[in-house]
């Protein structure tokens, strides 16, 4: 097969077109949000929020409401609840998140177990099935994704200031608490948008891996975000082709390619490159 038809053949299929658009979009939105997730150390929260969407999805399924709505309500509510707990709570932060995380997911599993028949749709939400996305879903995804991107890019400098130096930002008049809740709400929306593509369990990788890779390569915020976006888009496209030709799970393929990018940057990266250290460090890093 010649290289051109290798690229173009899959595009003859509508599901592949939709899948490509959706996964590239999800990759970009996740990479942009992920830059803040990585810098603020919100990876665990991202994982918690994505698991917390499960009961929302199941309830929406049971009552026949749009799954996006159910998931979005659960995600944003959990994200804001975590924000509240972190500001008011007396427990260690990761402890409270762990409690919320497991509790909400257990509730989802409990509800799920009351559904009589095997439900392929819901399993798809656990593991992602971007090639099965319908046009209507794609439109919702595009709108929500565009909103997240627009908000983040518009208030980029304020979010940057508030993340880097919250006290200094508050003193200069920025509504730091509001920005923090806004960021969490946007994270919730991002996660819901991404679940269709990679599933509840792997969303956190989409959020964290491209930005973490970028952080190994550059030391400037703007460039970090840009590189994360490029990595995410490349991974989305190559992951889908891999999944198309080898008949592999699409979400897992995308995440694995992102992971490979990360490992390559870890080994070769100018900042942390294991190769630039003593030989012993390579042996430890590779094992």
């Amino acid at each position: 097969m010649d290289p051109v038809s290798f690229i173009t053949d899959p595009l003859a299929y509508g599901f592949m077109q939709r899948g490509l658009v959706a996964s590239v979009l999800v990759g970009i939105v996740c990479a942009v949000m992920g830059t803040f997730v990585v810098l603020k150390g919100l990876a665990f929260i991202g994982d918690a929020v994505s698991h917390a969407t499960f009961p929302g999805l199941v309830i929406a399924y049971i009552v026949g409401a749009p799954l996006y709505i159910g998931g979005a309500i659960a995600a944003v509510a959990t994200a804001l609840a975590i924000g509240l707990v972190s500001r008011r709570g007396r427990l260690r932060f990761d402890t409270s998140v762990g409690v919320l995380f497991a509790g909400t997911f257990a509730f989802g599993v409990l509800l799920f177990s009351t559904i009589k028949n095997y439900v392929a749709d819901l399993l798809g939400y656990l593991l992602g099935n971007v090639l099965g996305i319908r046009t209507a879903d794609l439109i919702q995804l595009a709108i929500l994704g565009a909103i997240v991107l627009a908000v983040v890019l518009l208030i980029r400098k304020e979010l940057l200031f508030a993340t880097f130096d919250p006290l200094g930002a508050a003193a200069s008049g920025l509504p730091v608490a509001f920005l923090e809740y806004l960021l969490l709400a946007l994270l919730g929306v991002t996660i819901v948008v991404s679940i269709q593509a990679v599933g509840i369990i792997m969303v956190v990788a989409m959020l964290v891996t491209p930005s973490a890779t970028a952080q190994l390569i550059v030391v400037r915020f703007g460039r970090m975000m840009l590189i994360a976006v490029v990595i995410a888009a490349l991974s989305a496209v190559s992951g889908l082709y891999l999944s198309f030709y080898l008949n592999l799970a699409s979400g897992a393929s995308i995440v694995l390619i992102e992971t490979i990018f990360f490992l390559v940057a870890l080994v070769l990266g100018p900042r942390t490159g294991l190769l630039s250290r003593a030989p012993r460090a390579i042996g430890q890093g590779a094992s």
Partner: peptide, 12 residues
Amino acid sequence: AVDWEFPVTVAE
């Protein structure tokens, strides 16, 4: 009170 690992330059 500041996160010194943050990827910002002096000018930023």
